[in-house]
Design a binder for these strands. Structure first.
Length: 416
RNA sequence: GCAGGGAUAGUGAAGCGGCCAAACACGUCUGACUGUAAAUCAGAUGGCUUAUGCCUUCGGGGGUUCGAAUCCCUCUCCCUGCACCA
């Protein structure tokens, strides 16, 4: 590493404009100052930190990764930081209770897929300006108590307590672990250790990111810029993807991703296009206009959204294929024979209740019976009841529970 | 350390000796309607070889009782006062 000569930063008005205005919640100290810095010709170092608390990155990360991508295009140095050390403490942001600490093993396991998934958006293999992957345990695990105290003295308890989520917990008499106060300090130390100029993050990270700016100002005597992106939400402010089932990870298959996006409310389309795609803002304006005038239906708008997001991650060809498979899967008449269905082996005469449990589609026999009673189970698109047994004639059957997710389908291959 | 209060299913929260597998709300799942969207309406939501049957659940353990989520003892954890405090 580091044998290449650092590339010369580009000054591209439209990219810089995109970077400083699109999907932005806040830029510190100001968008203008950031734009000015980006045009200074100095090569800047920017980073996005992600705690490996989950095994996969999700759509929420896309807009921030796109910010990094823009910076990469402008030839600035970009870093994806895996918070393998901080992840073991747990960020208190937006948590009403102390977060459960993760074990070292869990953290590393979760971090494993990040590079590959983030690689769909930022380029780790660029010959001239590759993105870098760093782990913050590298410096945080080396710190002594004296250094920690030194940094801790630069942040006041009052500043910490200003945070809503701490206030809420104080009011509700919920505990606040002292280690949670140290979280922003560790994140600030990340900025110091990498000597960054820009930190990219969600608007929920503003407090933590500002601590880093404070440290940088005091210790490096320069301004660290903060690009705080908007969080994906529908117009009523409801956050997207908070529930497990609707969580779209960058590891989802294209079809799955396409389908999950189609389950979002229609109202999200413009916001999601702005955040999660690279579609030019002028195009998005047009979509908004067409949606408002009725020229584009809510459904078609969302189809477009799903196609655009999947294309951004997997390319045009695969996106088109996902679209076809989705249409195929959802058309009422066709047999839902799609690629990549999981297979379960069954024997002739086997009872449907057993099959449902053994194939992992439902968690208990009681649950299976309940679903059967409510007409939720289909074989080859035919609703079946509790008494159904594997027939002697067919060789392959498609079993479906409910009509929602791709994951609720199984190919049944019958053995003698 | 002392004195009080609390721990109930995914979450919040009722229940305070039998009618409790446990109200209600949220969430989740399913059905209808749709665009396998949203909204709305309806049902379900511990498990079991489907049973107006059995088993396991109300922080852990032990007891009282014909019978305990409910009473007593004890342990663990949390909260609130008071005391102590580098």
């Amino acid at each position: 590493m580091g044998t290449n000569k650092a590339p010369q930063p580009l000054v591209n008005e439209s990219l810089i404009n995109e970077l400083t205005t699109r999907a932005i919640a806040e830029i510190y100290p100001s968008p203008e100052m950031l734009a000015k810095e980006l045009k200074s010709g100095r090569r800047l170092t920017a980073y996005l930190g992600i705690d490996p608390t989950m095994s996969d990155l999700h759509v929420g990360h896309v807009s921030q990764l796109l910010k990094l991508r823009l910076l990469q295009k402008l030839n600035h140095r970009i870093i994806l930081l895996v918070g393998d050390f901080t992840g073991m403490i747990g960020d208190p942001t937006d948590k009403s209770a102390t977060r459960i600490k993760l074990s070292r093993e869990e953290v590393l396991a979760n971090a494993a897929g990040y590079k590959q998934q983030a690689g769909k958006i930022i380029d780790f293999n660029d010959p001239v300006n590759p993105a870098e992957l760093l782990f913050n345990s590298k410096w945080l695990s080396q710190m002594g108590f004296a250094e920690v105290l030194e940094l801790a003295s630069e942040v006041t308890v009052q500043q910490m307590l200003e945070r809503d989520m701490f206030q809420r917990r104080l009011k509700n008499n919920k505990p606040i672990a002292l280690s949670e106060f140290l979280y922003p300090i560790m994140q600030g130390q990340d900025s110091l250790a990498m000597d960054v100029d820009i930190e990219v993050g969600g608007s929920d990270q503003i407090f933590n990111m500002l601590v880093g700016s404070t440290f940088i100002r005091r210790h490096k005597n320069k301004q660290k810029f903060i690009i705080a992106g908007e969080l994906l939400a529908d117009p009523s402010g409801k956050k997207i993807g908070k529930t497990e089932g609707n969580m779209i990870t960058l590891n989802d298959t294209p079809l799955n991703m396409f389908h999950k996006i189609m389950l979002w409310g229609d109202a999200i389309t413009p916001h999601a296009l702005e955040l999660c795609s690279e579609l030019p803002m002028t195009e998005i304006e047009k979509i908004i206009h067409d949606l408002a005038s009725g020229k584009l239906s809510g459904k078609d708008g969302k189809m477009f959204l799903a196609g655009t997001i999947v294309e951004g991650l997997h390319g045009e060809k695969i996106a088109e294929q996902a679209r076809h498979e989705y249409l195929d899967l959802t058309s009422k008449s066709s047999n839902p024979l799609v690629t990549e269905l999981q297979t379960a082996k069954v024997t002739k005469g086997q009872n449907i209740v057993d099959i449902l449990v053994e194939s992992g589609l439902v968690s208990s026999r009681s649950a299976a019976r309940r679903l059967l009673l409510s007409n939720a189970v289909r074989v080859n698109n035919q609703t079946i009841n509790v008494d159904w047994l594997v027939p002697t004639s067919d060789k392959k059957l498609v079993l479906q529970v409910g009509k929602k997710m791709h994951a609720n389908f199984r190919n049944l291959s019958i053995i003698e």
